[in-house]
Simulated assay, not measured.
Amino acid sequence: MDNTTYIALSRVDTLTRALDVTANNLANANTDGFKASRQLFSEYLVKQKGPNTLPGDKQEAYTQDQATYRDQLQGPLRATGNLTDFAINGEGYFTVRTTQGIRLTRNGQFHRRMDGTIVDGSGNPVLDNAGRNLVLQNEEDLLSVATDGSISTQTGVVGTIGLVTVDNPQTLMPEGHFLLRPTTQTHTVVRPEIRQAMLESSNVNAVSEATRMVEIQRDYDLTFQLIQTESTRNMNAIDKITAEPSV
């Protein structure tokens, strides 16, 4: 296997990863609060080696999958009419208490349990701005949530939805079920903006992702065709050498 094949294989490897990332984005195009993943590619240079290598000879350039990051662009907000649905307009994350600890989420599709606790879709209690479970009395009906997150019922203000942020959102580790695990210190959002009876849609543009998938597949096919061509060329060269009569 020569260097051309190795370089092409490095490209195939990164394209395979890109296809997986794009497919996951498409699968979550309708997932509330989902942030699309993007890839960072880099050129991995390797110096040529051998007895005939001269100073200044070109280096071999391989493709390297450097990292995957989340696109932090906010998704569009859509009205749901459900009073326990909340959307964050701007920065910040809701906080929920799980059996593994505090987790963050942008998906504000919540509901109230029979005991009055506000929970997410997995039953994790939503926390207020003091880090306590957000609980409404059973007899109270949720009336309104102000843009700062304060919840008002017939008895007045009964709590405030807590929003936090981190210095670098890329350090948040996804854990499934719309949850993110903070790996650095969180900070309270100074000027939160919450919209009641609304949800933040996915920021995935399905048309763009589908187009991207077609482009990746085409590049993959062309690169794989190059590998097959190089393999055929090498086999033909070997056949010619072995077929030549020895002197």
Rank of each mutant, 00 (worst) to 15 (best):
P55N: 08
E43I: 07
S42F: 02
A67Y: 02
D57N: 12
G33K: 02
K35C: 01
N52S: 14
E43L: 03
G33M: 03
K49W: 10
K47R: 10
Q48R: 14
R70K: 04
S37H: 05
Y44I: 01
K35H: 06
A61P: 03
K49Q: 14
Q39G: 13
T63W: 00
E43R: 04
P51N: 13
Y62K: 03
F34I: 02
S37F: 01
L54Q: 15
T53I: 15
Q39P: 05
V46D: 09
Q39T: 08
R70W: 03
F34L: 05
K58Y: 03
T53H: 07
A61M: 05
K47D: 14
F34S: 04
R70M: 01
L40F: 02
G56W: 10
Q39F: 02
S37I: 00
D57Y: 09
T53P: 08
S37L: 06
S42R: 13
K49F: 14
V46A: 12
T53A: 14
D65R: 00
G56Y: 08
Y44L: 15
D65W: 07
Y69D: 04
S37G: 12
Y62F: 15
V46F: 06
R70Y: 06
Q72V: 02
D57R: 07
D57A: 11
D65G: 09
Q66A: 15
K35L: 04
Y44K: 05
K58N: 11
S37Y: 02
Q39W: 00
Q39E: 15
E60W: 12
S37C: 03
K35R: 07
D57T: 05
V46N: 09
P55K: 08
E60M: 14
D57L: 03
Q48N: 09
D71L: 02
F41V: 05
G33D: 07
A67E: 07
A36K: 07
E43G: 04
A36P: 03
Y44W: 04
Q48K: 11
S37R: 06
A61D: 05
T68D: 06
F41S: 09
Q48Y: 04
K35T: 02
T68Q: 13
V46S: 09
K58H: 09
T63N: 11
Q59D: 12
E60H: 11
Y62R: 07
N52D: 15
D65T: 11
F41W: 10
L54A: 14
G50Q: 09
Q39R: 06
Y44R: 08
T68K: 03
T53L: 09
V46I: 09
T68M: 08
K47T: 10
T63D: 12
R38G: 08
K35E: 03
Y62W: 06
E60I: 10
